[in-house]
Amino acid sequence: MDLSLSTRTEGGRTIVEVGGEIDVYTAPKLREQLVELVNEGQFHLIVDMEAVDFLDSTGLGVLVGGLKRVRAHEGSLQLVCTQERILKIFRITGLTKVFPIHPSVAVAIASSD
């Protein structure tokens, strides 16, 4: 399955809904999307990963890169994920300490208010 991306604005935040597989082949598309949003002045991002089937370290690298970009503008990058197999990768790499990870978009928006 390829990568699907869509963006919308909700509660003053930009939600990036990601679906499919984020790996060495597809991660550049996610990177482009995050760079584009930051260039447009969207500095408070919520990446919804509930429809992600697979995530590898390349995808993690893109998310870390996105976090660095928004932080340069005093922004934020939060994640929405409840899938254990995806959360495990964040735990292995220690990135649960770096990203706020929420169970839903609504909770992510509420927590950033």
Partner: peptide, 22 residues
């Protein structure tokens, strides 16, 4: 394994070395 005890410089390590860490 990335050292997350420091911010800033550690982020580059995270970005580049996560494959082996995983």
């Amino acid at each position: 394994m990335p050292d997350l005890s420091t911010n800033g410089a550690g982020m580059d390590v995270i970005e580049n070395e996560m494959g082996l860490a995983v």
